[in-house]
């Protein structure tokens, strides 16, 4: 039996760290208003802002173009950043995109990758804590809404949902209903009733309408995983003004790797060629090589 808990209520006798709970004296307490199921130990906060996690698929609106890329409004306390490096298509302000969180820094800079522009459709905004209810177990809830309204629906972990299809309005209403009633039991049945479909119909419709993978197909895979610095495209050559300051100190690199005492593989190969340019050096190298070789 789930019950409503308010900040400061005891949840568990063991410590569980979570943004919506806090731990005091090895016990877990609720930090927000939510529904708690003591049998399963499940706690569902009713409201809360989106907290970024690496790997989350999020939907956002391109807000501004910067030198390094784009600032993305994720409808969360923190802005997303999308590097324009390696992007195949430019974006424009007010474009709606789906992207994956690739990095969250200590100070909550959210770096996004694999962007995909969402054309047309509409976005609605729900509480990020209820995204899991909109999707449902093995995306059961989402399949009901998709099948009944024949809409393409993409759910961002940050609480933005993109809907496109013939019955956009109905789908939006259904999702808003899920958002409102997420803490009440028997939700899937009520949504099916709301959409006027039976479970059998949903199953039939889902079978008829194969899972479209628009989600993956439209991703900008051209965005390369590339880092500045050593190697790669930027190697060598003129690197601009000499204002980079002193060379970084790499410290003591420790003893050289042990290659054994065999001769260097390239040493004997060079010696028979015997071209004149480095003639003086070669005998020395050869001597060294033979010295090493004799040791074997």
């Amino acid at each position: 039996m789930t019950k409503l808990v308010t900040p400061g209520d005891l949840l568990l006798d063991r410590p569980v760290r979570n943004p919506y709970t806090f731990v005091k004296a090895e016990k877990t307490y609720a930090a927000v208003v939510g529904m708690f199921d003591p049998e399963q130990g499940r706690f569902m906060p009713i409201k809360g802002s989106y907290l970024p996690m690496v790997g989350d698929d999020v939907i956002g609106v391109v807000e501004e173009e910067k030198v390094i890329g784009y600032g993305i409004n994720l409808f969360s306390p923190y802005k997303g950043l999308l590097s324009s490096k390696g992007l195949r298509f430019p974006f424009e302000p007010n474009n709606i995109i789906l992207a994956q969180v690739s990095e969250v820094s200590e100070v909550k800079d959210i770096w996004l990758s694999r962007p995909m522009k969402l054309e047309g459709g509409e976005i609605i905004d729900i509480a990020p804590t209820k995204v899991s209810r909109v999707i449902g177990k093995h995306s059961s809830m989402l399949n009901v809404v998709k099948a009944a309204t024949k809409c393409d629906i993409l759910v961002g972990k940050n609480g933005l949902i993109w809907i496109k299809g013939p019955n956009q309005q109905k789908a939006a209403e259904a999702i808003e209903k899920i958002d409102r009633e997420a803490h009440l039991p028997g939700l899937t049945d009520r949504i099916m009733e709301f959409l006027g479909v039976s479970p059998e119909e949903v199953a039939a419709m889902a079978a008829q309408q194969p899972q479209r993978s628009s989600f993956e197909a439209g991703r900008d895979e051209g965005q390369r995983e590339e880092r500045g610095g050593f190697g790669g495209r930027d190697r060598g050559g003129f690197k601009g003004r000499d204002d980079r300051g002193p060379r970084r100190d790499y410290g003591d690199r420790g003893p050289r790797r042990d290659y054994g005492d065999r001769p260097r593989r390239d040493a004997p190969r060079e010696s028979p060629a015997g071209t004149g340019s480095s003639g003086e050096q070669q005998p020395a190298e050869q001597a060294q090589a033979s010295e090493r070789g004799s040791g074997q």
Binding site: T6, P7, G8, P19, Y20, F22, K24, Y29, A31, V32, V33, P45, I46, K47, G48, S49, A127, T129
Partner: peptide, 11 residues
């Protein structure tokens, strides 16, 4: 504050 979903140690 509780209505806004702000994490709090108490009310």
């Amino acid at each position: 504050l509780a209505n806004a979903g702000i994490p709090m140690r108490d009310l």
